[in-house]
């Protein structure tokens, strides 16, 4: 990489993080609202995490809403039944989702392609039905309400996150931590092995690499980070419902990733931003927003299979 491109890259990421840091200041002026920005970051964590498995390891998981929803219920139920502590809620939710993903990972780690996708879909639905039917604890179909994110106590200071803009910075901090973790993982030997599995699984097998264990690791880590996003989502709305576990949400995560570009680290975030804004806008202008979203799916698949960043990247490569 030339010095010019490197400084361009540093400048780009500085602008990116600065824009995120100041988002509550400018988002309202361009027609958005702070909670929308928070939601983009929350879904962004989930989509980037799922992409570790989908884009980098090549495992087509269509059931990631399970970990998202488990995180959400874990956080909500901690606040409601256990203790009014936001950090504890985030921790419990993330651990619950992460442990579930880790335990169920061995069921899928040796499967490929269609089989992998189908089993993850079905596993996701298991948790959906538990949430719907176990209604005296989970609130059933109506969802889990009656909890609220509690103020953060940092030493002698109290940071009241009731306000949307203040909670945004909590989410941004988690987002930054998650991004750093994922970047470090992808730069590590583990991350390189994931990409190698995607590119040529059989060759790796011949080299004696236990690919099932690496896929398990990808599944567990991806599930844990998705659960973290789920906890933040429950705290954002002070509410969670079985919809957070439903396969439609799993599908939405996947389409967001494909829309942005699944071969690029930041692709999913772009997809999330477009998808969440489009969904927000469409549901306010038409009752048939489901049809609109469905058409979006069809058009993306037929016309932009490489995603937006993928298309830009290809052009950049040709120029270089």
């Amino acid at each position: 990489m030339s010095a010019a491109r490197r400084s361009l890259r540093v400048a780009g990421s500085a602008v990116f993080w600065l824009a995120l840091l100041t988002l509550p200041l400018w988002l309202t002026h361009v027609g958005g609202y702070t909670a929308l920005g928070t939601k983009i970051l929350v879904y962004g964590i989930a989509a980037l995490a799922l992409n570790l498995l989908l884009g980098f390891t090549g495992g087509l998981s269509f059931g990631h809403a399970a970990w998202f929803g488990l995180g959400a219920y874990g956080a909500g139920m901690t606040l409601k039944y256990l203790a009014p502590s936001t950090p504890l809620a985030i921790l419990v939710g993330t651990v619950v989702g992460g442990v579930a993903a880790t335990l169920l990972g061995p069921l899928v780690m040796r499967r490929r392609g269609i089989y992998f996708a189908m089993i993850t879909i079905a596993i996701g639905q298991l948790f959906y039905f538990i949430a719907v039917r176990w209604n005296n604890v989970t609130g059933g179909e109506d969802g889990l309400a009656g909890f609220e994110r509690a103020p953060l106590h940092i030493g002698p200071w109290v940071y009241d996150i009731h306000h949307d803009a203040k909670y945004y910075y909590v989410v941004l901090a988690c987002f930054a931590v998650a991004v750093v973790i994922m970047k470090l993982l992808l730069a590590s030997p583990l991350g390189h092995t994931w990409v190698a599995i995607r590119e040529n699984r059989r060759r790796l097998q011949f080299l004696g690499v236990r690919i099932d264990l690496y896929i398990w690791a990808a599944f567990a880590i991806s599930g844990t980070l998705t659960a973290l996003a789920g906890t933040l989502n429950a705290l954002l709305f002070n509410f969670t419902s079985p919809q957070d576990l439903h396969w439609i949400l799993s599908g939405n995560f996947v389409i967001m990733i494909v829309l942005g570009g699944m071969r690029k680290f930041w692709g999913p975030l772009i997809g999330v931003a477009i998808f969440v804004v489009a969904q927000d806008y469409l549901s306010s202008v038409t009752d048939n927003w489901m049809t609109a979203i469905g058409l979006l799916f069809v058009l993306i698949v037929l016309l932009f299979p490489k995603g937006l960043l993928g298309m830009l990247g290809r052009r950049g490569k040709e120029a270089a």
Binding site: L54, L60, A117, V254, I255, G294, L295, F297, V298, P305
Partner: peptide, 23 residues
């Protein structure tokens, strides 16, 4: 060859059909 794309396509169709049926 990736099953991802037909999966997403039919997923979108499922949303469209359910929504149009409702309409």
């Amino acid at each position: 060859p990736d099953p991802l794309y037909t999966l997403l396509l039919t997923f979108g169709l499922a949303l469209i059909i359910e929504d149009l049926t409702r309409t």
